[in-house]
């Protein structure tokens, strides 16, 4: 359900982009979704099909999801590791002074579109 809300936000943003660039049709949309962004791409795709068919601009548009792996940086030993595997504790030095450097993204990267 959360994903449906996100789809509506994407449609709103792209409607704006469509107006600014005088687009008549968008045929595909590429998103960048981080591994730990709390957006599930399978659900997103389901909601997408349902929602875009109710718009003129995006009818039938393909959704492409590029997944970005989650990587955490450890300030103590200055190394990076996989967030999903090890969480907030550094697997090299056991330190807890860590922060996420990527994997949180929810971006619209690009679209393929036709001008009027």
């Amino acid at each position: 359900m959360h994903e449906l809300g996100i789809v509506f936000h994407i449609i709103d943003s792209l409607t704006e982009v469509g107006k600014e660039n005088s687009l008549s049709k968008i045929s595909s949309v590429t998103l960048e979704i981080g591994e730990v962004s709390a957006v599930l791409s399978d659900y997103l795709t389901e909601c997408w099909k349902w929602a875009v068919d109710r718009t003129e601009l995006l009818k039938g548009a393909e959704l492409i999801v590029e997944k970005i792996p989650a990587v955490t940086y450890c300030e103590d030993c200055e190394r990076t590791y996989s967030t999903v595997e090890y969480g907030r504790t550094c697997p090299y030095c056991g330190g807890g002074n860590t922060y996420l450097i990527q994997g949180n993204e929810t971006n619209i990267k690009e679209i393929e579109a036709c001008e009027t």
């Binding site: 936000h9 943003s13 687009l23 971006n107 690009e110 679209i111 393929e112 579109a113």
Partner: peptide, 18 residues
């Protein structure tokens, strides 16, 4: 025939809401 081109958007999904 319609000509499609790629447009870079580079925008957070939450940008509008924010």
């Amino acid at each position: 025939m319609d000509k499609f081109r790629v447009i870079e958007v580079k925008q957070s999904i939450f940008e509008n809401n924010d």
